[in-house]
Design a protein around this nucleic acid. Structure first.
Lengths: 238, 238
DNA sequence: GCATGTGAACCGCTTCACAGCA
DNA sequence: TGCTGTGAAGCGGTTCACATGC
């Protein structure tokens, strides 16, 4: 099982990348983007790291550090130009490219996603919506028509989708995921509460609402019981 | 390196809680729980860390480390009893307590959450569903009836909710969040794409689908462009 | 013998203080 | 002077190898 001594330097695979943005920073960058969009809507032209950090709910040193991964886009003594910074972050995240999203599953969740206006405004176009249920196929959801899952490969190709969102029951998630991968999709966001297996070349992200509630439950439980290490089990001293 | 033997017990900081489970471990623990439930359904009675780790999509050392935060629930040379471990993790996460969830917003997303069977099976009972739209109020969603948001405080109290899920538009999220906090809710899961301000005593978790897609876009962009450090800026060698 | 449990090294993110520049 | 940008220190999580106990 364990290969004893393989000094594995993890540049992730071939053609590995220089200067990868840490994943925690990535998450925050999307939040800065939201805050900048708000500022743009307000007509604000300049912003300091302190104020932007406050709007994003983080501290300003880490905001500056995050931005420094992208480059130096501010003016010392002044701050950041809202529109310029917005563009730079968008470009760094790849949002200036053409993202065409297929949604698999037209249940409540799939429909919620299809109707979510937040996507369009941030460079994601939803180009197809699928379901296995014949009663749902053909229905209109927003400006989309539900396609039969049997035509998955054909429609993916015709609509030139390059991302997919899985909003299907756990039982069928893996087989649909496999079909997506075979069809050439390399970015998948899954809402199905199962562990999916994908090749390394495919980016898979998961969102699980039950997980989130369970984590809340853990913290709530701790808050309820001030009696924290009431560990009555016999614990042998280290 | 410094002092050879310092009986260093790491209570993390002032007034901090004893023996907090690292957040990354917490997330994985919920996944183990799912895997264990599958094994239970299969009738499997024992499992090794290798096999459980494989089912959860992680490596086995980190699984054992995660479990070691809870205690020693395995048998060396043998493995873990599926049912027993399941109960221990559930207890550690606080899932044996009574969690009563209110869903705020009965749009597609709120309805998707209300109908999500994954909650019930894991100890979360959805006790109320609210909306501001008079056309939606009174409608039946599953076995719930949509309550008017004007009666939020009354219904929260009557149904004894102790958690809430915000599935409302960004514009109204903060004010509803404030009402939840004032009503005594201390655990909130938000799907609204805004930064919410809450007191420290309130646990807030956020799920944002646009953020997830943006992170996928970043990785997909990198995969597309092998030409990664085409950093043509003049960098003064400070 | 075999699989769990864990101290210790390692690595990467966060923090901080200050250097650099308008 | 003021705010950005960043090296370096600090810290927490992951990895590993092996001690532990059935």
């Amino acid at each position: 099982m364990t290969t004893p001594e393989l000094p594995e330097l993890h540049l992730s695979g071939a053609g590995a990348a220089a200067r990868q943005i840490p994943s925690a920073s990535l998450t925050r960058l999307t939040i800065y983007l939201r805050a900048l969009n708000s500022l743009l809507a307000d007509g604000t032209e300049r912003v300091s790291s302190d104020r932007l950090a406050e709007a994003a709910g983080v501290n300003s040193p880490i905001l500056r550090k995050d931005l420094s991964y992208l480059g130096s886009y501010g003016t010392r003594g002044v701050g950041y130009d809202v529109q310029y910074l917005n563009r730079q972050i968008s470009a760094a995240l790849g949002l200036t490219l053409d993202w065409r999203v297929a949604i698999i599953g037209a249940g409540n969740l799939g429909r919620a996603l299809a109707g979510y206006s937040g996507f369009e405004s941030r460079g994601f176009e939803i180009v197809s919506l699928f379901d296995a249920d014949q009663l749902v196929v053909g229905a209109e959801v927003g400006w989309l028509r539900v396609s039969p899952i049997t035509e998955l490969e054909t429609v993916l190709e015709r609509t030139r989708a390059n991302m997919a969102v899985l909003a299907v029951p756990a039982a069928v998630a893996q087989s649909l995921c496999d079909r997506l991968v075979d069809a050439g999709i390399t970015s998948i966001l899954s809402f199905a509460p199962v562990v999916l297996q994908v090749p390394e070349s495919v980016q898979l992200r998961k969102v699980d609402m039950a997980t989130e509630l369970q984590i809340l439950a853990y913290h709530a439980q701790r808050a309820q019981e001030p009696d924290l290490d009431a560990d009555s089990r016999t614990r042998s001293a280290q």
